[in-house]
């Protein structure tokens, strides 16, 4: 099987988010260009993880959640009534903060679980398995123990397995919600290297609390901020070099230089 590089452009237009009566995000306009890595940074509670979840319709799984605006995947609104959220999530994959492999499945079944869960069929499962694990740079560590339970792996390996699990669906966009926050520096470095390689074939959006990580892995950076009692929003968006080097907004300057947050 060949992985066809089909990275897509993802764009948010005037996205506002509510939890019940409380508005947590206001008018977020961002464009995630194809084959680029965009970092979402900002202090805790500014809505960046919430925003990330609007990008593949995981947000609406929270009972009180509301949303306005639109998210366009290559120009098509993923919130259009004719669109099935299940299809959106197959095209826009997600990696979570804590590694969450399926505990009842083997390493092999975890990687291929997306196929079974979404009802897809593939001709050559073994090839997809190998490709996905290689792309997540964990193949060499697990190739001789594919039948073992996924929980037998270390935390860092589990996270790379979860990345492989997303990759097996061949997504156009990969969303990562602080994927390294539960990992040691060595595992973090390996995942960062993986992100760089993956950006050749997909668009990546990564939420991170780690400024150094944002500078290492991303091409573009969006700085989110929520003032007290006001909904969060984007303060500044630009190339990572510019946002960290010559921030235009003073608040961005303060944040990236560690004056608050």
């Amino acid at each position: 099987m060949t992985i066809s590089p089909v990275a897509a452009e993802l764009r948010s237009e005037d996205v506002s988010v509510w939890f019940g009566e409380r508005q947590v995000l206001k008018d977020v306009n961002l464009t995630f260009r194809a084959n680029r890595v965009t970092a979402l940074i900002g202090p805790s509670g500014c809505g960046k993880s919430t925003f990330l979840r609007t990008l593949n319709r995981m947000h609406e799984l929270i009972p009180s959640a509301g949303l306005a605006g639109s998210i366009l995947l290559d120009g098509k609104d993923i919130y259009d009534p004719s669109v099935n959220p299940v299809d959106v999530r197959m095209e826009i994959g997600m990696v979570f903060q804590k590694p969450n492999p399926f505990p009842t499945m083997s390493i092999r079944d975890n990687v291929l679980s997306g196929l079974k869960l979404s009802g897809l069929r593939v001709d050559n499962k073994d090839e997809l398995l190998e490709t996905s694990l290689k792309r997540a740079s964990i193949w060499n560590e697990v190739k001789d123990r594919l039948g073992e339970p996924a929980t037998a792996l270390s935390g860092g390996q589990q996270q790379r397995l979860c990345i492989a699990r997303s990759l097996a669906m061949n997504p156009k966009v990969l969303l990562m919600d602080e994927p390294c926050s539960a990992l040691d520096p060595g595992s973090t470095r390996r995942i960062e290297a993986t992100i760089e390689e993956l950006s050749e074939s997909m668009t990546i959006v990564i939420v991170t609390h780690n400024m150094q990580q944002a500078q290492r892995v991303s091409h573009e950076t969006a700085f989110f901020l929520a003032d007290e009692n006001t909904p969060g929003g984007v303060v500044e968006f630009g190339s990572t070099e510019q946002v960290f080097g010559q921030p235009i907004d003073e608040r961005t300057n303060d944040y990236v230089n560690g004056h608050f947050g």
Partner: peptide
């Protein structure tokens, strides 16, 4: 987390329930 992981892979609710 497991339910979210399953849904994030494009599983309908019932498959997430029965398979995970």
């Amino acid at each position: 987390d497991l339910r979210l992981a399953a849904l994030g892979l494009g599983a309908p609710n019932y498959r997430a329930f029965f398979q995970v």
